[in-house]
Amino acid sequence: MKMKCLLSLSYDGTDYSGWIIQPNQRTIQGELEKALKAITKTTNFKVLGASKTDAGVHALDQKVLVTLEFAPNLDQFKGALNKALPKAIRITNITKPEAEFDIRYPIQKTYHYIINDQDDDIFSQRFELRWSKGLIDIKALQEIMNLFVGTHDFKLFSGLTSQEAQIIKTVRQIDEITVFRNSNNRVVIEFQAKGFIRYQIRMIVGAALAVYQNKHFSKVDLREKLQGIGEKSPIVAPACGLCLQKIKYS
Results as ranks from 00 to 15, higher is better:
Thr95Trp: 07
Arg90Glu: 10
Gly79Glu: 14
Lys46Phe: 14
Lys83Ile: 10
Lys63Ser: 06
Ile114Arg: 04
Ser51Lys: 03
Phe70Ile: 07
Lys83Phe: 11
Phe123Ile: 04
Asp120Val: 11
Lys78Ser: 01
Asn73Arg: 03
Pro72Ile: 00
Ala84Pro: 03
Phe77Pro: 04
Ala88Arg: 06
Gln62Leu: 06
Arg104Gln: 15
Gly56Leu: 02
Ala80Phe: 01
Ile107Pro: 08
Thr40Trp: 04
Ser124Asp: 12
Leu68Ala: 03
Ile122His: 13
Tyr105Asn: 07
Thr53Asn: 00
Arg104Asp: 11
Gln76Phe: 01
Arg104Thr: 14
Val47Asp: 02
Asp121Phe: 14
Asn116Glu: 11
Phe123Thr: 05
Lys78Asn: 00
Thr67Met: 10
Thr95Pro: 04
Asn93Val: 11
Leu68Phe: 08
Asp119Pro: 11
Ser51Val: 02
Lys87Met: 14
Val64Glu: 02
Asn116His: 07
Glu98Gln: 13
Val64Asn: 03
Asn93Met: 15
Arg104Asn: 10
Asp121Ser: 15
His58Arg: 04
Ala84Met: 06
His112Pro: 08
Gly49Ala: 12
Thr92His: 08
Gly79Ile: 08
Lys41Ser: 10
Thr53Phe: 00
Glu100Phe: 13
Lys52Val: 03
Asn82Gly: 07
Ile107Lys: 13
Tyr105Ser: 09
Arg90Leu: 13
Val47Ala: 00
Lys83Ala: 11
Asn116Val: 08
Thr67Val: 09
Gln118Asp: 11
Gln62His: 12
His58Gly: 04
Gly56Phe: 01
Gly79His: 11
Thr92Phe: 12
Glu100Ile: 12
Arg90Gly: 09
Ile115Tyr: 08
Asp120Ser: 14
Ile103Trp: 00
Asp75Trp: 00
Ile94Met: 08
Pro97Cys: 10
Phe123Trp: 13
Ala55Cys: 11
Tyr111Trp: 06
Asp75His: 06
Ala84Asn: 10
Leu81Ala: 09
Asp102Ser: 14
Tyr113Phe: 08
Pro97His: 05
Tyr111Ile: 02
Glu69Arg: 09
Gly49Pro: 02
Ala50Cys: 11
Ile94Gly: 01
Tyr113Leu: 04
Lys52Phe: 05
Asn73Asp: 13
Lys63Ile: 00
Phe45Gln: 00
Asn116Arg: 05
Leu65Gly: 05
Thr40Lys: 05
Asn116Gln: 11
Lys46Gly: 09
Val66Gln: 00
Ile39Lys: 06
Ala59Met: 02
Tyr111Leu: 06
Ile122Tyr: 10
Pro106Trp: 05
Val66Cys: 00
Lys41Ile: 13
Val66Pro: 00
Pro72Asn: 14
Tyr113Lys: 01
Phe123His: 14
Asp75Pro: 03
Ile122Arg: 10
Ala50Thr: 01
Leu65Asn: 05
Asp117Trp: 06
Ile94Cys: 06
Pro86Asp: 12
Lys109Glu: 02
Ala71Cys: 15
Asn82Lys: 05
Ala55Glu: 03
Asn116Asp: 10
Gly79Asn: 11
Val57Ala: 02
Gln62Asp: 08
Lys87Phe: 13
Ala59Gln: 03
Tyr111Gln: 06
Phe101Asn: 06
Leu85Phe: 05
Lys87Thr: 10
